[in-house]
Design a protein around this nucleic acid. Structure first.
Lengths: 332, 332
DNA sequence: CTGAAAGCGCTAACAA
DNA sequence: TTGTTAGCGCTTTCAG
């Protein structure tokens, strides 16, 4: 493997000149620069990023730690982050914490060790070693969920309000026993969606009882399990607010198995406008979140911090929007 | 930021001892070791991975370069790779080449510069700078699609055969004008699926004409465009083999818009058993590929190479399996 | 079992 | 404009 000194030797210059020529930094005699480039090509020279970063004390990579690579919501965020990072010359390292605090810790540790320039994180909730990042001066921006302990940059969605609106939509649709299927306790989005659901019920003069909501992991299988329980109650719900599209898959599977038709037999609204939601019969009413935008905003924020912006912690709140389709209409 | 020498100073030992103690390498006096660990904690010491890797000339990270983060097939591969890597103490860096040769080049370059231990790659097809990786001695294993130029490790699926079987299934279902919607020319999986489709037609005594297949990107929008063309032909197909689940979304959208019912009006088989395929009405007949297994096999192969296995290039061929559902039955 | 010292490959003062 | 030189933080011979 060719090093910078091999190139220097072949080009008949010093390593410093090679470095300068190849990085286009300070002015270098065009003739020499050409010679250097030629030598580099001839030797198949690729700069050693490790050495470079060690020296420069910085890397051009961002870490993006998300809680589920298989969830379209998070992959859309990833695209947003990537697109912005790309244009700024940063590359993005995607890490899958799998909604697992331990994995999250490990990845933060890796980020720390590899000295990434910044981190975009969707925190699992249970307090983690984010503070260590902060202490070391690595900028962090939280997406989708806030960092609980310390104030910091974050890009969130007003998911509680969205959940309230979605529930109100069901109420207006004539549903009377509305249930809710949400994610694990402690995960902020899960809690907020449940809270919004309750807000709506209370405003409508109903006291939300515990028998009408269930928690499950953000996965199809556990969601299906939970909805099964709910439907087996003596007085089952006639509508359901579902906290994300992965869970919605489990819900729709169970409904199909029971020959319950969404809309007619049971009203359904789910979070996240996954590509398939328009294809099911009847089409699924969803709450769409600006996932891609979350990513771009977060990345811009992060880059600004890396660039040294010293403003106070910024918190961006984006809006979610209800897309009414047939699964929340009784005549569907 | 605390360095190893800060720890050494505080513990009253040399940096060498700190290194040994913290890495549990050679034997260190337990008393000193304890002192070192204590000092490390007190200073909030996190080893600088850059420096470590520079010295060791190796990193414990794998790069996984895939062509579409939003495609469940590839995210399943990612999980497979990650799970294996994880247990071996490696972390995985996910890069999204976006089916774009230029982005792929860039990410390979990053992998090269960061001196990752190995690369798992789903090549875009157009020959790239993979050979540079090989030259530098970085192990590479190709997934989903072969590397064209040089022989190397690869984990593929017998997708041509699967396409033939899927087409035969349609023929047996009584469909007579079977069309095919596949991906870009040059992408091996796209070409193989088309070839398998043609194999089946020829075996059945039909000469496959050009008017019955279309190419599009592996995306919903362009697939929809292509299927629109196909259906507008004077003599449109009565069945369709669709090359992946992302395209299937575009296809199903267009069919719904035209009120064509899959199965009854037009037989549909699509590659990839995405989670939603059972939820549409009628359920979608699919060819399921062992994506997760592709990932695990590839990762194991890669780790073996990193470990120095000098066997000849290995090529693993996994099987895909047809899951007949109602979208390929006329009575559906 | 421990320490001194060399050096991984690169960049950035500082001199010339 | 170019070269010399001193490290970045760590691991690892090689002595002791």
């Amino acid at each position: 493997v060719a090093t910078i000194s091999d190139v220097a030797a072949l080009a008949g210059v010093s390593t410093a000149t090679v470095s300068r020529a190849l990085n286009g930094k300070s002015t270098v005699d065009p003739v020499l620069a050409a010679k250097v480039r030629e030598a580099a090509v001839e030797l198949g020279y690729h700069p050693n990023g490790l050495a470079r970063n060690l020296r420069r004390q910085e890397t051009a990579v961002l870490a993006l730690i998300i809680s589920d690579v298989e969830n379209p919501f998070f992959t859309a965020i990833a695209r947003g982050v990537e697109d912005i990072a790309q244009t700024a010359g940063y590359s993005v390292v995607l890490c899958n914490s799998d909604e697992n605090a331990e994995k999250e810790r490990r990845y933060i540790d890796v980020a720390l060790q590899e000295r990434v320039a910044g981190v975009v994180l969707s925190p699992t909730g249970t307090s983690t070693n984010v503070d260590i990042l902060r202490d070391r001066g690595t900028p962090v921006v939280a997406v989708d969920r806030p960092l609980v302990e310390v104030p910091g940059d974050q890009v969130l969605v007003d998911t509680r309000r969205a959940a309230r609106e979605a529930t109100e939509h069901l109420i207006q649709g004539g549903y009377r026993r509305i249930g809710c299927l949400t994610g694990p306790s402690g995960v902020r989005t899960a809690d907020d969606r449940l809270a919004g659901y309750r807000d709506a019920l209370r405003s409508a003069g109903t006291e939300p009882g515990d028998e009408l909501f269930r928690r499950a992991e953000f996965r199809a299988a556990t969601a299906r399990e939970a909805v099964r329980e709910l439907l087996d109650e003596t007085d089952p719900p006639d509508a359901l607010l579902v906290a994300n599209s992965t869970m919605a898959i489990g819900v729709l599977e169970e409904l199909a198995a029971r020959r319950l038709r969404p809309g007619r037999d049971i009203g359904i609204v789910a979070f996240d406008d996954a590509p398939w939601t328009r294809l099911v019969d009847p089409p699924l009413t969803v709450v769409t979140q600006p996932a891609y935008e979350i990513g771009t905003v977060a990345a811009k924020l992060l880059l600004a911090r890396i660039g040294g912006s010293a403003d106070g912690p910024s918190s961006t709140m984006l809006e979610a929007r209800l897309i009414p389709r047939a699964s929340s209409r009784r005549d569907a």
